[in-house]
Nucleic acid binder design. Structure first.
Lengths: 142, 142
DNA sequence: CAGGATCCGGAATGATACTG
DNA sequence: CAGTATCATTCCGGATCCTG
């Protein structure tokens, strides 16, 4: 796959004559606003991690809290509400004793698949890269 | 493309006999930690937006600040330092009058291409979806 | 178990003014 | 132009306690 450059990500659009269209201050920022929109909803420290945990089959509150390392109960609670509002998950309460609350991803959250895959791959690559850099730095210091 | 589910994103690994491997508390979270690593570096409100602005050819400080709507000079300054530390960009100073400082993406930032594309697509899709939802809500209210 | 309510400290951010 | 310094503010998030 060509990872060569951002060429196809740039915002210059070509008109019919092949010339570049000038871009004013607020034009041509399709990518910028689209990514901004995405970040607004799924950005932040926890959202995606919670979704991943849910996709791994963890549905209960405390399960999720154990799974998403470092998150507090209150924050998890807030994030879950947010995710529900945005249609990523559904909260169901089973009246029993003790009460059972389950969070389940909706079909809509499946649309995030490509984002998750891309992030996972990049994260893996980046970590390996960091390790290599640190090794080289250690070499140079010796 | 199959957007069907997260199936291939789940963490159960099959062993040679085809059985599921149990996952302890800290095992099997490859996806979770990888995405966590990614978010740690490129997460936050601004990082990716700055990178996009840079990829669109805006290289000067004030250009970038105008481009990335809502960011303050101090925050932009800090983010740029961070991005430089992480190898996403290089800062060059041309001694002239006035001084010209340019920020340019490195080759390493090209590795983010797939992430950016996925996010842009999802953001576009999501926004359209929101509009549709709001329309329907307006309908129902009438 | 699944959270809500409250208190509180520190970190992030905005605004403004200033520098080379 | 390209930032830095300082102050005020806000707000995020942890800790703790409480409820159904």
């Amino acid at each position: 796959m060509d990872q060569a450059s951002f060429e196809d990500f740039k915002c210059e659009t070509e008109d019919q004559t092949g010339g570049k269209i000038k871009m004013g201050s607020s034009e041509c920022s399709a990518a910028l606003t689209a990514v901004g929109d995405a970040l607004y909803v799924i950005g932040g420290k926890w959202k995606l991690r919670i979704i991943i945990a849910l996709s791994e089959g963890f549905t209960r509150f405390n399960e999720l809290q154990r799974r998403v390392e470092g998150i507090s109960a209150r924050v998890l609670s807030n994030e879950l509400k947010d995710l529900e509002l945005n249609g990523f998950l559904v909260r169901t309460v089973q009246v029993a004793s003790p009460v059972i609350v389950e969070y389940k991803l909706t079909d809509y959250s499946d649309t995030l698949k490509n984002v998750l895959i891309a992030l996972r791959e990049w994260g893996t690559m980046h970590k390996a890269n960091i390790k290599k850099r640190m090794k080289e730095a250690a070499q140079a210091a010796s």
